[in-house]
Design a protein around this nucleic acid. Structure first.
Lengths: 133, 133
DNA sequence: CAGTATCCTCAATGATACTG
DNA sequence: CAGTATCATTGAGGATACTG
């Protein structure tokens, strides 16, 4: 599948994809890294390598199924490295690839900003409620 | 609804929310700004104020329903300002609030990175396919 | 133009149970 | 421990038609 580009900026860096084109593959990549659980996984792994069970415990509300699925997608995109130690019981470690580390930093900036500004946003939401006249 | 914080970093800035807590409101904010269409809207409005029809045309594949819904959510979070000119036909302009401009910049960094790295990621996906043995 | 209203569908997600 | 398999649900999202 070809990468779709509708317009190119005049200066570098070269944009290989265009998230505004309906059929551009960059859409799916963006979906993966901004997915509900995928985004949280990326930021956690930025701090350190974690095992499946650890990730499950850190991320409140995630199911085994969704965690496994999110990890697989991020692995297939090349963001996550899955290392299996053939011990008994099995031990599996998840870490970030260099590429994964790059995206994760951007995602972390976003989640961090959100965490630091929730209160302001919640207040705005409530003010909107009141001024429904 | 109280903001849930499970742990506090030792240094500033103070984290008001925790996206890893299942019931923390920051979760919904993160969902809004990383939503399929919401994220694209934010980045577009970073460049300039746009009308509903313009947004619809810029964002490939979006339906009127989803665009309207995304705009409403982002407006209620305080990221987007909706200005109505009571002309005939009606004219409605969407722009970013100062708060919206802040998140949008983080989102733009993310979408930009994705656009610049799609090719690498697609190659990795295909290599994974092959090595399925 | 800038939406809203309705209907409809399927895919994302969760719950539960099972396994190497 | 680290998942997979299966089933059930529901709500996100699209298509279409209508309106101030």
């Amino acid at each position: 599948m070809p990468v779709v580009i509708s317009s190119q900026p005049k200066s570098l860096p070269i944009r290989e994809g265009n998230v505004y084109a309906a059929n551009c593959p960059s859409r799916s990549v963006l979906d993966h890294v901004t997915s509900r659980w995928g985004s949280l996984v990326l930021v956690l792994l930025l701090a350190r390598t974690l095992r499946f069970g650890e990730l499950a415990r850190e991320i409140g509300g995630v199911s085994q199924k969704m965690l496994a699925q999110s990890l697989q997608v991020l692995e297939s995109d090349g963001f996550i490295l899955r290392t299996v130690y053939p011990t008994k019981p099995p031990k599996v470690e998840y870490s970030l690839t260099p590429l994964g580390r790059e995206v994760a930093q951007h995602v972390q900036a976003l989640t961090g900003w959100v965490e630091q500004n929730v209160t302001t946003i919640l207040e705005h939401r409530e003010n909107m409620q009141k001024s429904q006249d």
